[in-house]
Simulated assay, not measured.
Amino acid sequence: MTTPRVAICVVTYNSAPLIADLVGSLERGAAGVDWSLVVADNASADGTLSELERHAPHATVVRNEQNLGYAAGVNAAVRAAGPHDAYLILNADVRLDPGCVLALVETLTPAIGIVVPRLTDAEGARISSLRRAPTVLRAWGDALLGAGRAGRFPRLGEIVSDSKAYETEHSTDWAEGSTQLISSDCWNACGTWDESYFLYSEETEYDLRVRDFGRVVWYQPRATAQHLEGGSADNPRQWSLLVANRVKLFRATHGRASTVGFWCATIIREGSRSLLGKRTSRAALRDLIRPARLRQHRGPQWLADVKLPAPDRS
């Protein structure tokens, strides 16, 4: 059998403190596969590029002239990688555990287009990284019960919060985008990531599109990695964009009546949390009730201080 060829594709933006540990985890994390590192840098203004030269001198680095967003960065990295058996889309704040990539690759089949690992946070606690497709009922369950409680019931929650679901391998509608292995066959059939999602919901759109193309997103707990996670939950602009893009994605795939129901549930969720003093929800609520803001392109100027990629997608 030939050794599988995997391109590890990373998007960076002012990610200098993360580079050494990321690169340090790759040798053992990708043991057993023929791997190469490709980094798309979104015009970092810190020492990200010098850290890459220091710790990964043989990496292919795509130097984008501006912050193009996460999806565009992923596409640029895959283009630069060229033909491989699979592409591992990896956040800069992920640390691969030994044997992670091989376990992911071994799970791929013609039907399974994407494989995701079991993720833990910086303290070693399991991350609820699996998701169900967004629906109006799940949006209301989240709004009225909270994501964690609603997630225990498949019809009511988008986040899969039942710990038993993380013990065995199985298919999932989608998964958080920090660590996703995509087969080349899947990539060629389903196309590139949608760059209109500057940040947030880009992996949701892609994973659900893969399902529409008759392929499966698969969870493999034998593959493990650590995701340090960032802080969108504490950043009003990031949280507002996360919420707006969820509505945008739902609107793109559903009719007007369903979209209104989803939007109302989101209003209730963010409104109730803003009454509790959450600045992030207050910012999201302001945008939700102003349609022009929802349609506005949120580009690099609007998110000038956002670090990519390290979002908390809960």
Rank of each mutant, 00 (worst) to 15 (best):
I114G: 02
V136K: 07
N91E: 15
A150G: 14
S50V: 12
G47N: 15
P117Q: 00
V105D: 03
A77H: 10
L156K: 07
H55N: 06
N67M: 04
I89Q: 09
L119E: 03
G141K: 09
H84V: 01
G124E: 06
A139C: 12
I114R: 03
R95H: 10
A92I: 04
T120S: 11
L52I: 13
D97A: 13
L137H: 01
W140K: 06
S129Y: 05
A56C: 14
R63P: 12
L90W: 00
L90P: 04
E158N: 11
A80I: 13
E158K: 14
P117L: 02
L137E: 01
V78E: 15
F153I: 15
L90T: 04
N67D: 03
D46W: 13
T107H: 03
L119H: 03
N67Y: 00
E158F: 10
D85N: 14
T107N: 01
V115P: 01
T48M: 10
P134H: 01
E106P: 01
V78G: 15
N67A: 12
P83E: 15
R63I: 10
N67W: 00
G148M: 13
L102N: 06
A122V: 09
E65D: 14
P83I: 10
A40T: 08
S44N: 03
A150M: 12
G157H: 11
P154T: 09
R132M: 11
A139N: 04
P98W: 04
Y87A: 07
S128A: 09
R138C: 04
L102Y: 03
A81R: 08
A133S: 06
I127L: 14
T109V: 02
V101S: 06
R155V: 09
A59Y: 08
G47Y: 09
V62D: 07
G113M: 05
G69M: 09
G151E: 01
A143P: 05
V62A: 12
V61G: 08
P57K: 09
Y70H: 06
T135F: 13
D121Y: 03
L68A: 15
R54P: 04
R126W: 01
G82S: 10
I159A: 14
L156Q: 09
A72D: 10
G141R: 13
A133Y: 02
D121F: 00
E65P: 02
S50R: 10
G157V: 09
R126G: 01
V101G: 04
F153W: 15
L102Q: 05
A43L: 11
A77W: 09
L156I: 05
A81K: 10
P110V: 03
T60A: 11
R118P: 05
A143D: 02
R155K: 08
E65C: 01
I112A: 07
T48F: 09
A147H: 13
V101L: 05
A122H: 02
T60G: 04
A72E: 11
L96F: 11
A81W: 12
R126S: 00
A86G: 15
A92C: 07
T109E: 10
H84M: 05
A147V: 15
T109C: 06
A150T: 08
A150K: 08
N42M: 00
V74G: 03
N91F: 14
E65Y: 01
I112G: 03
S50Y: 02
R95A: 06
I159E: 13
A56P: 13
H55W: 15
G157W: 11
D46T: 11
